[in-house]
């Protein structure tokens, strides 16, 4: 089974109205080449799940700036003034989620869980509209799972079967997103032969990856 495709080939899977997860933290660990291709393709009304909306000219921020996004589910928008501007103008919906809760909601879907109970957000606006559950005398918020049609992740080294290794802080949300979407596309900085990543150093196992795209260093 050959999972390696060109960027143009994987663009056929990206459609208007989809929910797409993007790995990356302030664009570090984001598949920039795939983001560029989505900007070029110009699909609209996307819901984007990412840690943040990065910058106007970097990471998923480019999709926001190009007005391809109707909703973002993120922990932070402060580094991309365009997200704030569109939010205030009523052009984009912003769901702010505490970073750890965002991670757990994504992990929960990928792990087949019905949600997570977290103390984060109790006594704040985050609890509005949510169920509070008491366990052994302690209160928690019920936070529901998050899934996507497509997860676009970035690997530093990806072998030809799709095993992924992440360099340093590029890992962030990538491994959990690889478990929470119907289709997983990984942009590889470097594609290596099977066996070059030691099995115990594989972070995302190949069974989770559908397609591999060669991205190069960015």
């Amino acid at each position: 089974m050959n999972k390696i495709k060109t960027i143009d080939e994987v663009m056929e899977f990206i459609k208007d109205g989809q929910t797409i997860m993007f790995g990356g933290f302030l664009a570090v660990g984001t598949a920039e080449n795939i983001v560029d291709a989505i900007v070029k393709k110009g699909v609209k009304d996307l819901t984007i799940i990412c840690n943040d909306t990065a910058f106007v000219d970097k990471g998923v921020g480019k999709l926001v700036a190009n007005k391809q996004v109707k909703k973002v589910i993120v922990s932070h928008i402060g580094t991309n003034p365009e997200t704030g501007r569109q939010m205030n103008a009523g052009e984009i919906e912003v769901e702010l989620v505490p970073q750890g809760t965002l991670a757990e909601r994504i992990r929960a879907y990928g792990a087949g869980l019905g949600g997570v109970l977290t103390p984060t957000g109790l006594g704040t606006v985050v609890e509005e509209g949510k169920t509070i559950i008491e366990v052994d005398g302690k209160k928690y918020l019920l936070e529901k799972p998050l899934k996507a049609d497509v997860a676009i992740i970035k690997g530093s080294k990806v072998d030809k079967k799709g095993n992924v290794w992440y360099s340093k802080t590029t890992r962030n949300f990538n491994p959990i997103m690889a478990m929470a979407a119907d289709l997983v596309i990984v942009e590889a900085e470097e594609i290596v032969e099977v066996g070059e990543i030691e099995p115990e150093n594989v972070v995302t196992p190949h069974i989770l990856v559908d397609y591999i795209v060669k991205g190069g260093e960015r």
């Binding site: 302030l26 840690n51 992440y166």
Partner: peptide, 25 residues
């Protein structure tokens, strides 16, 4: 590939360890 939570370039001390966002939180 090595930044802090503000996106600034940083270094890692000997013995440092990396993990994903779920582990981090």
């Amino acid at each position: 590939d090595l930044v802090n939570a503000g996106g600034k370039y940083v270094t890692m001390m000997p013995g440092g360890a990396c993990f994903d966002s779920a582990m981090s939180f």
